[in-house]
Design a protein around this nucleic acid. Structure first.
Length: 291
DNA sequence: GCCCAGGCACTCA
DNA sequence: TGAGTGCCTGGG
């Protein structure tokens, strides 16, 4: 992707397939802070980055050309042509066409697997503001201080080793609740290589999913989220309550099991299932479809 | 005060 | 194999 650099700013030309608000607020990531409309700070890959989007430009700072090319370009999945994907999906049916048109600026972030795993373990039975809060508490308690920016202190998400030091009470103090033992189990299994996150990308989707399911507190939905948002398996189709609602609303017209929904998605969306899911999820949640 | 939220584990048929 | 229930916690 073309960009220009001015001092510590990287400037991209605004485009249809990049809306920072839609990217961050579509429920795939939790470490962002809204300063104003289209003005966000994110923490990822141990860095703090501000993203300011105007009509003409997307401004990222502080960063450098080198860091942009090595980190942020892949994080924002900038090499993928979302226009083609959206065209394919919109041709499927009118529902998908509307969902894509509703939020054409969504992109699937390529997040770090470890952070993704723990974040989605935390996500169960929680609403997004709570999830953000617990992830923030854990980062503050076990991560490393990065900087203070616009009056907020920012911390890295803890490494496996850092988080493995945590005991159950400390995790409960971070408001993890009944998920505290799950987090500890994830730390143990990843640390002792019972589950090797770095190998999941090169495994077939089904096999990679089986690996993640070994971790306590990780069921089909969370495994699929990790595979889609952290590993890059785009055929993963996480079925949460909103996706269940919207799929029933559009395609089934009856109560349908997550298994059946997933089988349908695999057949119908193919290897774009995960991306389709994200447009549908955002559409459903914003409009509260099926509720 | 009660209910529920971007699920999962556990139990029991 | 599938349905039913409890779970930390905070907000409506």
């Amino acid at each position: 992707m073309k960009y220009k650099q001015i001092e510590d700013k990287i400037i991209l030309k605004a485009e249809d397939s990049f809306e920072i608000e839609q990217i961050l607020e579509c429920g795939q990531c939790f470490r962002f802070h809204k300063l104003a409309q289209n003005d966000y700070v994110i923490v990822a890959k141990g860095k703090v980055l501000r993203i300011l989007q105007t009509k003409e430009e997307i401004i990222l700072y502080p960063t450098s050309a080198e860091e942009f090319e090595n980190l942020w370009s892949s994080y924002f999945d900038l090499d993928k042509d979302y226009d083609i994907i959206k065209r394919h999906l919109a041709e499927k049916d009118i529902h998908l066409a509307r969902a894509v048109q509703f939020a054409p600026g969504i992109r699937i972030l390529r997040q770090e697997p470890w952070e993704c795993l723990i974040s989605f373990i935390i996500s169960q039975n929680k609403q997004i503001p709570h999830i953000k809060q617990v992830v923030e508490n854990i980062s503050r308690m076990f991560g490393k201080y990065i900087c203070t920016f616009e009056g907020y202190d920012y911390y890295t998400f803890p490494t496996i080793e850092q988080l493995a030091m945590a005991n159950e009470q400390e995790l409960r103090n971070c408001k993890a609740g009944f998920r505290a033992p799950y987090i500890m189990d994830a730390c143990q299994k990843v640390k002792n290589k019972e589950v090797e996150l770095e190998k999941l990308a090169n495994m077939p989707y089904e096999e990679a999913k089986k690996e993640l399911l070994k971790i306590k507190g990780v069921g089909p939905k969370i495994a699929d989220c990790v595979l889609l948002f952290g590993i890059g398996h785009e055929e993963a189709f996480p079925v949460d309550v909103w996706v269940k609602r919207v799929m029933e609303y559009f395609y089934f017209n009856r109560d349908t099991s997550p298994n059946e929904i997933q089988a349908f998605a695999k057949e119908y969306f193919g290897n774009l299932a995960g991306i389709a899911q994200q447009y549908l999820f955002y559409y459903a949640r914003q409009l509260r479809l099926g509720k």
